[in-house]
């Protein structure tokens, strides 16, 4: 009983309760909601963002931010399209696009880690710069003659009706969970985010950890960009624009502290499910995308406020004691 109460009192417990509630309401309101087709559709529409949200969880718990993820997605996708159009074999183009993601991440890491420039500033700049490169490569014309195997990867079922990107998300989610919560690397991520000086005094390789995270962020974003290109079957210079905010929203909603050091991978995953099922449920009720976005905004503010309200409450209680 006490176990149950402490689970519910935690942020993850609260998110779980919200998620169950949303599923119940949606299921009652729409016969379609729980069908396999709708559930797959629900994930598929945002699968690229939720993959990036996994790595963004590491970034934010580490006390940093990466605003350039959507631009890296766009750049990798555009580079792929440009290469394919230039006659480069599909597999090689994929490899080069991923390498570009690596370089983008390394570029961010270089300025953040070795020059100590705040990641907010560096990734704001590279958000603009990487997007610029993407537009230079592809402009507004759009490229869509990809190899057939590539299109199939994004559009068909991979295991039964479940598409490749969803399977990949599931695998990555498990790996990300294990890496963050069960390994020495994950432990370092938390401590560096909670108190960098303590981490340095304890002999942790703070710079190395940060560099690895930003590089991973670049590679995973490039991967997500490729998946996006495969799903829509075309690329354009503005592909994936503005995705970074959706990604960060999901992570913060998951209870990850914007100041670093706190949050869990299960929180992020639950928040992802909440956002997706809420949007899907509203769409099934014919509520427009703009209103959906507004509701999400309110949700995010509430998610940031609830812990603060709870803390102030307990502090006031402590004072009256």
């Amino acid at each position: 009983m006490r176990q149950l109460r402490s689970t519910l009192a935690s942020w993850e417990g609260f998110l779980l309760a919200v998620l169950v509630l949303i599923y119940l309401v949606n299921a009652l309101n729409s016969a379609v909601f729980l069908t396999v087709g709708n559930q797959i559709n629900m994930f598929q529409l945002s699968v690229e963002k939720i993959i990036v949200a996994l790595v963004m969880t590491f970034v934010i718990i580490n006390g940093e931010i990466d605003l350039s993820v959507a631009s890296v997605m766009g750049l990798a996708a555009c580079a792929f399209g440009w290469l394919v159009q230039a006659g480069v074999p599909g597999a090689a183009a994929v490899a080069i696009a991923l390498a570009i993601g690596f370089l983008c991440g390394a570029f961010n890491a270089f300025f953040i880690v070795w020059f100590g420039i705040p990641s907010l500033v560096v990734t704001l700049a590279t958000m603009i710069a990487f997007r610029g490169f993407a537009r230079i490569l592809v402009e507004d014309r759009g490229i869509s003659d990809f190899p057939a195997w590539f299109d199939r990867l994004g559009q068909g079922g991979f295991i039964g009706p479940v598409p490749f990107a969803m399977v990949l998300f599931a695998v990555l989610a498990v790996l990300a969970y294990l890496l963050l919560q069960r390994t020495a690397f994950g432990r370092k991520v938390y401590f560096i985010g909670a108190n960098r000086a303590v981490a340095e005094y304890s002999g942790l390789d703070v710079k190395m950890v940060k560099a690895k995270i930003f590089i991973a962020s670049g590679v995973v974003s490039a991967l997500a960009g490729l998946l996006f290109a495969a799903r829509v079957g075309a690329v354009r210079g503005d592909i994936a624009s503005g995705f970074e905010l959706d990604v960060i929203t999901m992570v913060l909603l998951g209870g990850v502290s914007i100041f670093g050091g706190a949050g869990t991978m299960s929180g992020t995953i639950l928040a992802i499910l909440i956002v997706l099922s809420m949007r899907n449920g509203m769409a099934l009720q014919n509520i427009t995308g703009h209103i959906q976005t507004g509701v999400l905004g309110v949700l995010l503010i509430l998610s940031v406020m609830v812990p603060i309200i709870r803390e102030t409450g307990s502090r006031m209680l402590a004072r009256t004691r």
């Binding site: 370092k188 909670a194 304890s202």
Partner: peptide, 23 residues
């Protein structure tokens, strides 16, 4: 500021400098 990460657990704080030993 320099000694302990206050938001993290006791055991995790104790083992921090020696993480390699437990990995």
């Amino acid at each position: 500021k320099l000694g302990l990460a206050m938001t993290e657990g006791i055991a995790a704080n104790i083992t921090l400098p020696m993480l390699g030993k437990y990995a």
